[in-house]
Design a protein around this nucleic acid. Structure first.
Lengths: 205, 205
DNA sequence: AGTTTTGTTAACCATTTGGTTAATTTATGA
DNA sequence: TCATAAATTAACCAAATGGTTAACAAAACT
């Protein structure tokens, strides 16, 4: 094995632990010792593999932020009809959140609390451009008379709001409604179709 | 002045500073010294007026969480038509967010990071029940044939998602679209009517 | 085998942090 | 006026925290 120490068991154990801790506690609340403990390694190894807390955090943040907007550009370029594009994006986006429920709150919160770190690493993790593509697609659909006129930005905001917000507000939703994790999960599954139809219903002519 | 030391200049200076710091940095990231500095008082005063960091935080959290759902119950009891209720709630809710843009992220994040503290103090700050009232109101409107059938919970989620999420995602929205604070503010103002009409458009028969 | 590189550890260190204390100043009230 | 209580401060403290070091073990190379 002439590999450059990458993917060592230790290294990935650290990354796994760091992911857990940073996502659970945030940058400010995370403790290096906690990460070392969960990885079952000596704290010094953290600095051996990754220079310091900030470097380790930026790595995890970039990796996580990268999951925020999956293959949407591919989808938007496809020959699906506009409504089916919405259905696909909504469904796949909510599924992403179901798989990574912590995702939206973690990214949004760290971007707010540490704008410099957040923005720098977000750009490295995320190839923007899908917004522009989405906007264009909406404008075309308006021109074609397929949907009612609406500021594309608002439509996009509405869509991602309805997809992501429930995961951010989960504790409050559970508190206000008394539902449990399983029922919450069911609700989110329902939303995969419900949200898309809610949107389409509102904008279709 | 035979008042029991309440509202002392010092005391309210502390509260103002604590509000700033906790909201900006969160519980984990907040520093007592930072609060003392911003209040321009000696750090010991923090412990003189408020036992410790957690007590001070709970106070601020409760106060802040209390703003999350204003006079909705009053509004729901009014004799406004269902659509006008939606218009009123959306508009007043977004205005609340415009006035306190940090509100949703702060509350949601702390409830996630510190479930015990969060939930305990949320209940003390918030008289629930407006959800039940809202659900009932939606069910009646469905029965009356005014709107299409929809799970009230989803409708409520959709509404609050579209109102609150943009404020949580503000840094990302600015990053993805290139807009500045002023334009963001304009967008949010537009949403006061846009979101309500978007919803009504989707559910009306 | 022996030497060099890589991985790992325990102990240590400086700084930060939440919190305390004892002394001092500033009202308050008899 | 004088004693008592309330407010304020500087100095201090112990624990926690991010990070380092020096010694040691395990591979890897020759």
């Amino acid at each position: 094995m002439t590999r450059k120490g990458k993917d060592t068991n230790t290294e990935s154990k650290i990354l796994d632990a760091a992911r857990q801790v940073f996502i659970e506690k945030g940058l400010a609340g995370a403790r290096m010792q906690d990460i070392a403990d969960r990885a079952e390694i000596n704290k010094a190894m953290l600095h051996y593999y990754f220079k310091n807390k900030e470097m380790l955090f930026e790595l995890i943040f970039r990796e996580t932020a990268g999951k925020l907007f999956p293959h949407f550009e591919m989808l938007l370029d496809s020959d699906l009809g506009f409504f089916d594009k919405i259905r696909s994006i909504v469904s796949s986006y909510i599924e992403t959140m179901v798989q990574n429920p912590y995702l939206p709150l973690f990214v949004m919160n760290e971007m707010n609390k540490n704008p410099e770190i957040g923005m720098k690493n977000f750009f490295e993790a995320q190839k923007p451009g899908f917004v522009k593509k989405f906007r264009a697609s909406i404008e075309v659909s308006i021109q074609e008379g397929l949907i009612q006129p609406i500021n594309p930005l608002h439509l996009i905001m509405n869509m991602f709001s309805m997809c992501a917000f429930p995961f951010i507000a989960k504790p409050m939703i559970k508190l206000l409604t008394g539902i449990e994790d399983e029922q919450f999960r069911n609700l989110m599954d329902q939303r995969k179709v419900l949200v898309a139809e809610f949107i389409i219903n509102s904008i279709r002519k």
